[in-house]
Design a protein around this nucleic acid. Sequence first.
DNA 1: CACAATTCAGTTGTGCACAACTAAACGGGG
DNA 2: CCCCGTTTAGTTGTGCACAACTGAATTGTG
Lengths: 168, 168
Amino acid sequence: MTTTPTPSTAVSEAPAAEEYLRLDQQICFSLHAASRAFNGVYRVVLKELGLTYPQYLVMLVLWERGELPVKKLGEHLRLDSGTLSPLLKRLEAAGLVRRERSTQDERSVHVHLTDDGMALKERALLVPRRIAAATGFDIAEITDLRARLDDLTRMLDAAALNETPECF
Amino acid sequence: MTTTPTPSTAVSEAPAAEEYLRLDQQICFSLHAASRAFNGVYRVVLKELGLTYPQYLVMLVLWERGELPVKKLGEHLRLDSGTLSPLLKRLEAAGLVRRERSTQDERSVHVHLTDDGMALKERALLVPRRIAAATGFDIAEITDLRARLDDLTRMLDAAALNETPECF
DNA sequence: CACAATTCAGTTGTGCACAACTAAACGGGG
DNA sequence: CCCCGTTTAGTTGTGCACAACTGAATTGTG
């Protein structure tokens, strides 16, 4: 195992490909694991608010922007109606939002906060500090990591569209 | 932004908390979105191998380590049996792995690669380069990002265990 | 106006993540 | 040897992600 650290002018290119496979294992696994670890901490912190992590993301957008059609909500969160429709129904069942079909355009459904939904924001204000404390990162580190992740997302989304059939 | 690094004796603490909420929205959303974007690119690339992204992660471990009990596989991937059991059944149904109960310890189930499973590695060797091309990041950037994400995961896992009930 | 294409939310089906639980097998202490 | 706590997979139930589809409303074009 791992017999050739620097293949250089080796007789076959197989070792290089194997190393790529190992690196790939590392980066894709790291991102996957970090996302799930993050999710796990939020799960604990949000439990007392009665929210899941994706529900919290939806509430964050609504707290900041007030009221939005499902379509816009999906654009902000990079989620489609297949995910949002049942999630919003659960938030509505919990009494945090109301969904009302627009009178101007009956195709679209506008999501409003209820009084309970707005009130929940006060309790949610404590969440970010608990999360920040859990990461142990300072503001600069968090901001930098965020920028890097957003770059990554942009690149990946662009690549998914092009679907680069021939890159080598 | 970040106008009040130390709120101290301010007249009201609302603005600082709101900013934290906004920053929180940014970082938790960024990680969530990056993970899903990554997943999406893998989904496209792995489609021709007939693998999902989590199935690919399992195969990567098996390609590198050969044969493992479910328990060890779960430790490597940070996944429990509730996720792995049905996933492994699907891989077995696809003819890529075999699951066999250990004769030494009948509680544990060992996961082996089949010939098809081993053969699939050859086709998978092309995957990492296609992903790397999609990110547009060079090796150094990927390695750095990976290190940062692993730090984050470690911190979050540690915090989840302590569950820091009073941090402020 | 009529009709085709588009937009929007919702539904269905598949797979993953995880908590909570079950059941079988193991292993050590009386 | 037997009991009891532990370990290990597996099952069940809930929720999210997403592809593929449906159906209603809207818009553009002849």
